[in-house]
Design a protein around this nucleic acid. Structure first.
Length: 205
DNA sequence: TGAATCTTTAGAATTACGTCA
DNA sequence: AATGACGTAATTCTAAAGATT
């Protein structure tokens, strides 16, 4: 499929695959190709496929009566680019915009609609994946923080009991306390301030 | 090395169902 | 309440690319 460069509108042409490349219907032995005049907006919204019977003596009636396979459309780079540009501007299309875009791209409105639906889905999936990665990193970081804090707790627990000489009298409540309890039990101090060494002697409750 | 076959992936299309005017 | 337009989510299916034999 190619786009003619010197055209104001999109002119698409398609090259016929060699006969051996045509996909055969698994049950009927028929071959399918798309209606080659793809410059025409499809008359029916969804299924504008014609069947070509590959069996030597089959007649036309038979070739059109059996089950149809859908043929996958491949958008050209230009079509994809334009759709992408539209998507960046707006993730949903008003009917008028859809019609205009479909006409310009020589696609059916349904195809444009489906493209936007799928594009929104891909966008959401990508966002979810990024969010997932971010949360994974947060989890890793918190896990490491937790490990360090656990280690610190173990170290503090392993310390000998605080001697009376290290204890200070709190001038406000007038009870003996050691520095490690102050900030933590108070609840007013930020977390970083609670990490005070045991030997600190100038603290309040 | 090239051809045949199998596997994987991207994305177009379909289906089912929900919401809203 | 019924209906049609439009959305999302899940799934199907095809073409193409890559891997394997």
């Amino acid at each position: 499929m190619a786009l003619s460069p010197n055209s104001s509108s999109l002119e698409l042409s398609i090259s016929l695959p060699s006969f051996s490349q045509l996909s055969s219907h698994p049950s009927s032995g028929e071959y399918m190709v798309r209606n080659l005049d793809i410059n025409q907006t499809p008359k029916t919204e969804d299924r504008d496929w014609i069947m070509i019977d590959a069996t030597p003596h089959a007649n036309e009636e038979d070739s059109n009566s059996c089950g149809r396979r859908r043929k996958k459309l491949r958008l050209t780079k230009e079509q994809s680019h334009l759709l992408e540009e539209s998507f960046i501007q707006n993730h949903t299309l008003a009917s008028k915009q859809k019609l205009e875009l479909a006409t310009f791209l020589k696609l059916s409105q349904r195809q444009v609609e489906v493209w936007f639906q799928n594009r929104r889905a891909r966008s959401k999936l990508k966002h979810t994946e990024m969010e997932c990665e971010y949360l994974k990193r947060c989890f890793g970081s918190l896990k490491e923080q937790n490990r360090l804090l656990q280690k610190e707790v173990e170290e503090l627990r392993a310390l000998k009991p605080v001697p009376a000489s290290v204890l200070t009298m709190c001038p406000r409540c007038e009870r003996a306390t050691d520095a490690t309890d102050n900030a933590v039990n108070d609840g007013t101090a930020p977390r970083s301030q609670s990490r005070v060494t045991v030997s600190s002697s100038s603290s309040l409750c």
